[in-house]
Design a protein around this nucleic acid. Sequence first.
DNA 1: TTGTACGCGTTATCAT
DNA 2: ATGATAACGCGTACAA
Lengths: 338, 338
Amino acid sequence: MDDMTEPRSGPRMRDVARAAGVSAMSVSRVLREPALVSPELRARVEAAVREVGYVPNRLAGSLSSRRSEVVGLVVPSLENSLFAATVKGISDVLRRAGFQLMIADSGYGPEAEEAAIRAFLGQRVAGLILHDTLHTEGTVQMIRRAGVPVVENGTLTETPLDMVVSYSNREAARAMTRHLARLGYRRIALVTLPAGVNARSRDRRLGFQEALAELGLPLDPRWMLEMPPGLASGAEAVARLMEGEAPDAIFFAGDVLAAGALLECQRRGWAVPGRVAIAAFDNVDLLAHMNPPVTTLHLPRHEIGTRSAQMLLDRLARRQSGPATVDLRFEIIQRAST
Amino acid sequence: MDDMTEPRSGPRMRDVARAAGVSAMSVSRVLREPALVSPELRARVEAAVREVGYVPNRLAGSLSSRRSEVVGLVVPSLENSLFAATVKGISDVLRRAGFQLMIADSGYGPEAEEAAIRAFLGQRVAGLILHDTLHTEGTVQMIRRAGVPVVENGTLTETPLDMVVSYSNREAARAMTRHLARLGYRRIALVTLPAGVNARSRDRRLGFQEALAELGLPLDPRWMLEMPPGLASGAEAVARLMEGEAPDAIFFAGDVLAAGALLECQRRGWAVPGRVAIAAFDNVDLLAHMNPPVTTLHLPRHEIGTRSAQMLLDRLARRQSGPATVDLRFEIIQRAST
DNA sequence: TTGTACGCGTTATCAT
DNA sequence: ATGATAACGCGTACAA
């Protein structure tokens, strides 16, 4: 039965020092620079640390050293598994370096992002990783004033805050569109997420339009839909596009729209790709296992995370200096749905 | 062109105080207890805050007050979207209370969990939320010594560290098994994730066995499979179970195994539920959109998050005192696959 | 209502 | 190689 007294503060460095019969500074050194310390001292201190169950207070440490081992990450949504791969990459690299990860979502737009970043800066994070590339003025000012390194992830923005690690959404959409044309499709439709505050969707639409123009294919505005995320959206989109003058291929450039569409085709008995071909944007496991398997892009989601974290760490270690843009490659995965 | 000098520390409270012509304490009060301060003082201070772009240092604040507004969360995997709903619930509640979230994954087992918790305690988190319920001795000791409130989420463990918010994996598995029997199925197989270090899988297997015993149905060990997570696993499981003496229903109690199995049945031309019925454990969007839609359980994933965070906040505000177990309800969603 | 003094637990710096 | 001292930036407790 625990007694519910005041939250204990636990043993401090000086308690360890006393137990080991040394000064607090020696304890600090043993913990951070064991090489600079005599083996005997180290042994005594390490024993004392275990004896009293000492867990160093990183708040005090960071306050004093003016450094922190926490990175702040802002993703558009915590529920979207597309970001999960990137988060995993970030987390893996940070953990090995002894860094912690704080996460917030900006689901409600750039203002929510600003609030999250303000909170992170209050915690004096060592760096920031942002998925979105569209920020409020206040956000930009805060970040500049704070002088923390930042990596943006969502798309290869031309106006980066600092560092960017991503792939080109525009080139990826362009490549897939050209791929569909190469396969013989001529009436190609595009479905994206709402492009309003989503730079990624905007870039994908641009790439699609570019490709059609280059190929001399018709660009019918009725064949460019914006739908909210979700399987139901994909189903609705394909149903809507197929009534009237139907496309022969649909490029679903976002979320799980393509999967939803294919499932709807199965229900309606529409042959894929016989009646309409379907292509997706993201190489989620599901698409490979569907019937037919769905043609899609493979994007370096995990690598975006590892590279982002690594660049941040390099900058913090002064191993790298200025802004930088890393353009990671994507790949087309041709499957039976096209 | 930024000059890459030393990381600036930014304006401090005393800088704001000077700019406003008041004492630092007044700045602190304006920020934390605006009600106790005269309107004019507040106005001057708020203007000064904006003028110098002040962002309070929460490291210093927490060090001084011995309180923090950070909660540590450990999930088994950052890539599994099942946890995402819970994380979202946690994040939503914490944000409204001005709390931040630190996240780590324990993908490599209880030792990784211990390391994550040690790091969190070093950051002096106000509380912990753990998905797993199986911990090392070191973990238990550390948490007791630190005296931080803890919520466990994964299953209704009978040996909680402190608070538990979950549903009963055992009852849920039992209920679904009985449901299948009620529908007339008699040769019921079970597929779970490896139950080794996974208390959830263990509880599900127990519930399944209980139900069979109660119903007087045969318990053939060859009909209880353990498979790694993933669609491919589900496909392999159904293929393996259907050779030889085949079950008439398969209960896939984990991950997306059921979806993988159904897709495999489509490929093989096995009618579902004609040839074999399929039930799943988690109400992911996909299952509702498949052909046929898949019978499953609806689990209170999001509510687990909100309730966990709320209980933690309540405890921190001294509004609730002791250990507690919250048993949230689940629900059977009967669909065409059974 | 506002201000002063001190301490939170650690690290940087300098001295021995 | 080890120790003493003074910050780090804020909040608590008390005084005015």
